[in-house]
């Protein structure tokens, strides 16, 4: 269970939020500070607050270890190698997940700049999901994807949630929230409020 207490990252103040599992959607208009809240939970930006996962306080373990368990995936992944393969390990698990994401072997070796926005977004998800972190903080994971591919990613998220992973997702698609979210949290006046599913 992920517990967030008294976390302030302006303009948001989280008094208490507990995420036990399933897929929780964070719904709020653009500019409400959703991405920064996710980055703060992953401890990527300076923030005050108490965050713990399965009774382990994040300040009691190395930040690198925390982010192996609590993974933030930005809306637009960045790349440092020439190909997607340069960012991924060459193993069976990666290839199987890639197939489920609709990514063919040939795309792994193609220069990053020749990939479509949607392909890059899927490779970004693959890179972040393949080592199976306990918590996934997904910032608009399907924003650049068409309906069919979105559904593939959604199926994978539902599968991961079924395996006991905690998924927290920012989505602007009500249909998507309807399809996969087991819980909805809204931001109203800087505070988190339980929303209607």
């Amino acid at each position: 269970m992920l517990i967030i207490k008294n976390l302030t990252i302006l303009p948001i103040n989280v008094e208490r939020l507990e995420l036990k599992g399933g897929v929780t959607a964070l719904a709020a208009p653009s500019g409400a500070g959703k991405s920064r809240l996710f980055a703060a939970i992953a401890d990527l930006v300076v923030n005050e607050g108490e965050v713990s996962l399965d009774d382990v306080n994040r300040n009691d373990i190395a930040a690198t270890e925390w982010r192996k368990r609590v993974r933030y995936v930005s809306a637009e992944p960045s790349w440092w190698g020439n190909t997607a393969q340069d960012h991924l390990s060459d193993d069976e698990k990666t290839r199987q997940m890639a197939v489920r994401f609709g990514l063919t072997t040939e795309l792994f070796e193609r220069p990053i700049e020749q990939l479509s926005t949607g392909e890059r977004q899927r490779f970004g998800l693959l890179r972040a999901l393949v080592d199976e972190p306990r918590v996934l903080l997904l910032d608009e994971p399907t924003a650049a994807l068409d309906q069919d591919t979105s559904l593939k990613i959604e199926a994978e998220l539902v599968r991961l949630a079924g395996e006991g992973r905690i998924i927290f997702i920012i989505s602007h698609s009500e249909a998507q929230i309807e399809r996969i979210a087991t819980r909805v949290v809204n931001i109203i006046g800087g505070k988190l409020r339980e929303g209607k599913k």
Binding site: R67, R71, S74, E76
Partner: peptide, 22 residues
């Protein structure tokens, strides 16, 4: 200029020296 890249590397669990290496 490359803060997105550094943050992605950190988010994947790399240390600060690893993340800044390039």
């Amino acid at each position: 200029q490359r803060q997105g890249e550094v943050n992605d590397r950190l988010a994947l669990g790399m240390s600060r020296t690893e993340a800044m290496l390039p």
